[in-house]
Design a protein around this nucleic acid. Structure first.
Lengths: 179, 179
DNA sequence: CTTTACATGTAACTCGTTACATGATTAA
DNA sequence: TTAATCATGTAACGAGTTACATGTAAAG
């Protein structure tokens, strides 16, 4: 299960509650790894049972109590080891590609619309990444090693968005003059 | 379940057995959608039960019998409709990105190695795509609409590979001069 | 007065992977 | 004789989604 390692990674710097993790999985690491709150809460309990995390119950006023988690020594060790394991390359499994195999005059305008929607969300995402990059990762060679890793992930995100937008333009060209 | 639609799509042109589908999912559509034979056989049975596919039992000499499947009218109709539904954008969920968040001097050389392995498999894949493109999709504006769709998917694959290779070069640069 | 944010959970289900199983034929 | 190709399956498990459930407080 790689979600556990993504969660442990998110806990490297801060101790966080399930709720906070869920939110950070909507941004940051979550740009590359989506997870629902149900998955995260479950995974946290499992990791605690395995001794990789330690929890603390925090009473709060005016809002529900929360449970915050932090890495144990065993958790740190596990993460460090995990990095050395093999990781395989998963396919994207995007419906859109399957749909394109089904392109017909009937659905052509619908496909153009879907492509435009993808372009729109991709543009938004790209802007967000670029803002984060400009703010925190503008000078990657000046960063400590771990931050350089994060900077590279961000670059991957940016490059993917740009590539995707270019491809959508290609699609529009090739579909635009059809029928 | 989008796998069913990927399978139905593969059956648009030919009638195929589970075994043949499994192989074509190792190539072609399978570049964008991986599935194991267990998944495929099960899905085929389910689709037949739903009346979207029809099967035929073929006795063979010198090799096992096989069951070939083809789309029914209901299957065609279902596929046509499905294209009009919403499809959402899934994240890549790649371990490698999570690992990069864990970059340390200790694992730096391992990370370089993993990046190089990715580059190698990506280069092979890219060459394969380019060969297919040159052979069958060299002149996309001359193709009928459905083939244009396929050509676009192939272009997406090529552009992704190129982008990925460029990113790996970036990584090497930023990690190469570290420590 | 309704929605959003905070905070955590259960249950059912679908999707996907891994391991195991069978058995013939053909090529190295 | 060992491995690969052909051909189809079961079973167990792990990962991920969707629906449902609860309850307070602040903001609109």
């Amino acid at each position: 299960m790689a979600l556990s390692h993504a969660i442990m990674t998110a806990l490297l710097e801060d101790q966080l509650s399930g709720y906070e993790l869920t939110k950070s999985f909507d941004t940051s690491l979550g740009f590359f790894w989506k997870a629902s709150h149900q998955q995260i809460y479950k995974c946290l309990r499992d990791l605690e049972q395995q001794g990789l995390l330690r929890s603390e119950h925090i009473a709060q006023e005016g809002r529900p109590d929360k449970i915050i988690y932090q890495l144990t020594d065993a958790g740190h060790a596990e993460l460090e080891q995990w990095v050395f394991g093999e990781s395989k390359f998963r396919e994207s499994r995007d419906d859109l590609y399957v749909k394109l195999y089904n392109l017909t005059p009937d659905n052509l305008s619908h496909m153009r619309l879907e492509l435009e929607q993808r372009a729109e969300t991709t543009r938004e995402r790209l802007q967000l990444y670029q803002r984060i990059q400009a703010r925190h990762y503008a000078e990657p060679t000046a960063l400590p090693l771990r931050k350089r890793g994060v900077a590279l992930v961000l670059r991957a995100g940016i490059a993917q968005c740009e590539q995707y937008l270019g491809w959508i333009d290609d699609c529009k060209q090739l579909l635009g003059d059809a029928y």
